[in-house]
Design a protein around this nucleic acid. Structure first.
Lengths: 343, 343
DNA sequence: TTGTAAGCGTTATCAC
DNA sequence: GTGATAACGCTTACAA
């Protein structure tokens, strides 16, 4: 089972170095290569990662660090989608993946990750401002790709969406429907995505010459937060609500129902993410779709490229977002156009 | 930054072996130990995992293999809870964790995991019958703890719940309320948990001398499956429904509402898991609570113990489950007893 | 094209 | 208690 290079060498009658060359693609005679390949296949040989790492400095294992705020349902979804995207891409190249979750002691997290030298590169979520883990990782000299990015990360490699533009599109959609008292329920304060969506919302409102006083309410990406914020917005006389996530919108919808308001007739409502349940709400929820899976996919690809060419200039990718119009803003929609068009 | 044992030896004036002894707890003079410890601290030394692994055969990294059926919302929750439980426990002992997700090519999964010899042990979910990954891992000689277990795994180390007993408790609860036409919506066919819950349901019904013909309907752990199955159960004249998961119950609730049936007056409804939203449904959902986080926690603990003592006899843990009675079966409940009692 | 041999950074087995 | 020294399994010059 646990064959070594020496076993294979003995078996095939060549030297250990030659076997290694066959595996790693060095110059080998065709005949020799074939013979070795056959033995490799037959013995089901797998290189010992530790030994390889010691000798070459490469392990074939990537790290993924995610700050999941425990209890945030939002994270559950984002987390699993992102991870699947990363994992699919890595396993396609038979690369391993090591995972860190949660908000652990920042110093020791970075220490562990960088210190054990077991990782060829790291993907880390960078949405929280003043994040010591991201700072520490960036300071350490290890190939790194961010998912999301803070202002200070604009010189790093990252995969993100344009939150400002997306929020502008969302708000503009509500404006185009003739709404004027458009409220915005923000995401978790201190997160880049939440703050940027506020900026996008404000810039659209400003362009339309509309005030936002009393229409900007803090949320936290949860239905409960959305419920509470919506009660404030109802009192403020909102005729439309742009919620910073579909989860938030779900809570908002409940609050609107309880207040006896009709959606979208009295208040138009939209969310962000296009989570699974968005289309199944009553009424179906207009939202901004972002492809989280794809973000993970791209992040993994970038990381691999970065490792192969460490001198590569930073790669900054903005994944597209898409307005998906459903009945919660547009009212009845003919069946043939009920879904947003594909990206 | 990247100090080696030799650096430290030179720095402190002792031999490399002594530094290693300080780190790993060998016999060292107090004075020497202190001196070395100080240098260790100052240089922020971290051992090279690959080198350590090569020399000792230990890496301090555990593998976690999860078969997440893509698209199953059920999995998202189960998955993240379980993972957090495992991860918390491991990181407490400063052990690393490597993750495999999804249904990849079974042979290559096992090959990779076992072949690269980078893992001290593995935790794998064993709920699907005829699972080649679990079979392969069990056949490979690596410390292994299962989460869930199939019949053939009764000689392995595992952490599970007693699905039969839990389903019996659930069904008995409905029986105690005087219901006689109790339907059961199963989980995904071919999964141990789903099948065992069917057994528990049937044994309770049989004990009560009640028939189950037409009352056992296949589901898949999704709300949609629950919705569809419920329509069948309504047609079959069910006066109570035990759904195999809270997600399923959510779909069932919708179907009951649509049929103009009142819950619990016309049909009593209960789920399984006690997911976050269960208490927030209207009416709040009676369910069987299982502590998935704790299951992960225990699995990690067992694995560590197993690695420390490979001759340990298999450890089989059944985590308790708990009936949580809410209005969906019991109707109005005085506020002071609205929640199930703690375990 | 192939083989020899020198590391990579630890742990562990000896002596002293 | 401590220090040499031989593994561990691989990659990679350097020679042949």
């Amino acid at each position: 089972m646990a064959h070594t290079l020496d076993d294979l060498a003995a078996l095939t009658g060549v030297s250990r170095a030659t076997v290694s060359r066959v595996i790693n693609g060095g110059p080998v005679a065709d005949e020799t290569r074939e013979k070795v390949l056959a033995a490799l296949e037959e013995t089901n040989y797998r290189p010992n990662v530790a030994a390889r790492s010691l000798a070459s400095g490469r392990t074939g294992v990537m790290g993924v660090v995610m700050h999941v705020d425990a209890g945030l349902t939002f994270s559950d979804f984002y987390f699993s989608q992102l991870l699947t995207g990363i994992s699919d891409q890595l396993s396609e190249q038979s690369l391993g993946m090591m995972l860190w979750l949660g908000e652990r002691n920042a110093a020791s997290t970075v220490d562990q990750i960088v210190g054990m030298r077991m990782l060829d590169g790291v993907i880390v979520t960078a949405d929280t401002k003043n994040d010591p883990v991201v700072d520490g990782l960036r300071a350490a000299d290890i190939p790194l790709v961010l998912v999301g990015h803070r202002k200070e990360d604009s010189d790093a490699s990252y995969v993100d969406i344009d939150n400002i533009a997306a929020a502008d599109v969302a708000t503009s959609h509500l404006l185009a429907l003739g709404r004027t008292r458009i409220g915005h329920i923000t995401g978790r304060l201190g997160s880049v995505s939440a703050d940027d969506r506020v900026i996008g919302y404000q810039q659209a409102m400003q362009r339309a010459g509309l005030p936002t006083e009393g229409l900007l309410v803090e949320g936290d990406y949860t239905p409960e937060g959305g419920h509470k914020a919506t009660q404030e917005l109802i009192a403020a006389g909102a005729d439309a609500i742009f919620a910073s996530s579909d989860y938030t919108a779900r809570g908002a919808l409940r609050a609107l129902m309880e207040a006896g308001l009709s959606v979208p007739d009295d208040v138009a409502l939209m969310g962000f993410d296009d989570l699974e349940f968005a289309a199944e709400l009553d009424p179906p929820l207009t939202t901004i779709r972002q492809n989280i899976y794809q973000i993970g996919h791209e992040a993994a690809r970038s990381l691999v490229d970065l490792i192969e060419d460490p001198d590569m200039s930073p790669r900054r990718i903005l994944q597209p977002t898409e307005l998906v119009v459903r009945q919660s803003t547009a009212g009845e929609i003919p069946a043939y156009s009920r879904k947003g068009s594909g990206a």
